[in-house]
């Protein structure tokens, strides 16, 4: 499903006298359909940078990212043309970060429903119904559905963020610490949601600090710096 080969990323910062920062080099791993890889390592070791390279929010400096696209077949995300990347983001690849970054002035329920309308072509009513069910599962009270998430608490924002990411069952989902400020109960719900996604065939790569999530959903671990794949959890 996904094969990362000798991936490297350096930042060349022209405005700081061409300072060069090596984020990581020579990262290789592969994932079969429905597998879940946990990325771990100390902060600053390049975990988020890898996810951003796979989502192409960052340009890779070297190596390949082979993705089995439903639309294009084998596609090298590191070098594919922009509109191909936009297409796979629209239909196949999801990304969820630690912070909810959404369009301002859109109610929570519509933020969650939107991927079902634009990606899965559901009607707005049906999408809203499903979004509401999902938000309730994540313990967001219905009276907040039509409020703007920028006024929500950190934990509520993260739950909206996760709901938006999992509602449309992408083929590949990249998770960059989306559970950082969640309490135990919410983490248990998120763990269940991720297991359901995995069961439906979504391949995932995630960065988590919470051991419960790592132990209960990931199949493999990639340790940054050491650069080896260790089989962990079950």
């Amino acid at each position: 499903m996904l094969r990362v080969e000798n991936l490297s990323k350096t930042f060349n910062i022209h405005i700081l006298d061409n300072k060069v920062i090596n984020a990581f080099c020579d990262v290789s791993f592969h994932l079969k359909r429905g597998e879940f890889l946990g990325l771990s390592g100390p902060s600053g070791s390049g975990k988020s940078t890898i996810l951003k390279c796979i989502y192409r929010a960052y340009l890779s400096s070297g190596g390949n990212i082979w993705f089995d696209s439903a639309e294009y077949g084998k596609l090298n995300i590191a070098t594919a043309p922009n509109h191909a990347i936009l297409n796979i983001r629209r239909r196949e690849v999801g990304y969820v970060s630690q912070f909810l970054k959404v369009i301002p002035r859109v109610p929570a329920i519509d933020i969650v429903a939107e991927p079902l309308v634009t990606k899965s072509r559901l009607s707005l009513d049906k999408a809203r119904t499903r979004a509401g069910e999902l938000l309730e599962r994540l313990d967001i009270p219905p009276y907040l559905f039509d409020a703007y998430p920028c006024s929500f608490s950190g934990g509520e924002q993260q739950r909206v963020n996760i709901a938006r990411a999992v509602i449309w069952t992408p083929r590949l989902l990249l998770l960059d610490e989306p559970t950082a400020s969640l309490d135990k109960d919410s983490i248990a719900v998120v763990t269940d949601l991720l297991k359901e996604l995995k069961y439906e065939g979504t391949t995932m790569i995630g960065i988590f600090h919470d051991r419960i999530i790592i132990d209960s959903v990931t199949d493999k671990k990639y340790e940054m710096n050491q650069g080896v794949t260790v089989h962990a959890a079950q």
Binding site: F11, N12, I13, H14, K52, A57, Y58, L59, I85, L86
Partner: peptide
């Protein structure tokens, strides 16, 4: 030129970084 999030998060050219 590139994807908007890439231009804003990982700008390559000196001027864009500025």
């Amino acid at each position: 030129s590139g994807l908007t999030d890439q231009i804003l998060e990982d700008p390559q050219h000196h001027y864009t970084q500025l």
